[in-house]
């Protein structure tokens, strides 16, 4: 087998380890400490924010307008409405202002 194949398969194994590992470690404990619990509760907001923030900070008017509209829609509507309204604003504004 080529080196490339080995790299891909090792990377796949390492990735699977991250996806199963957190649960394997935590499930060894009978009870989860309240502070660990509080940390886990914060995981979605904390991690997902890091996937947005640098792109948002680098964004121009079209990106910021899309986020603003999506944020407003999110207050009332569901996830799909939020996404589609933001995407529509983004695509229209990019066509208009490049």
């Amino acid at each position: 087998m080529s080196t490339t194949l080995w790299i891909i398969l090792a990377a796949a194994a390492a990735t699977y380890l991250t996806r199963v590992g957190g649960h394997l470690v935590l499930s060894r404990f009978e009870r989860v400490h309240p502070r660990v619990e509080a940390g886990l509760e914060a995981v979605p907001a904390a991690v997902l924010t890091t996937l947005v923030a640098p792109a948002a900070a680098a964004g121009g008017p079209a990106e910021l307008a899309a986020l603003t509209v999506a944020g407003l829609v999110a207050l009332r509507g569901g996830m799909i409405a939020t996404f589609l309204s933001g995407a529509a604003v983004l695509i229209v504004l990019r066509q208009l202002i490049g």
Binding site: A45, L48, G59, A66, G86, L90
Partner: peptide, 28 residues
């Protein structure tokens, strides 16, 4: 920018889970 937008929508979905605002602000 579609995926950041999608993830932003998900971040908003968790806004009832306190302390949402400080966590989002600090992580951002």
């Amino acid at each position: 920018f579609l995926l950041p937008l999608y993830f932003f929508g998900l971040v908003m979905e968790f806004r009832e889970r306190k302390p949402w605002l400080p966590v989002v602000a600090l992580s951002a």
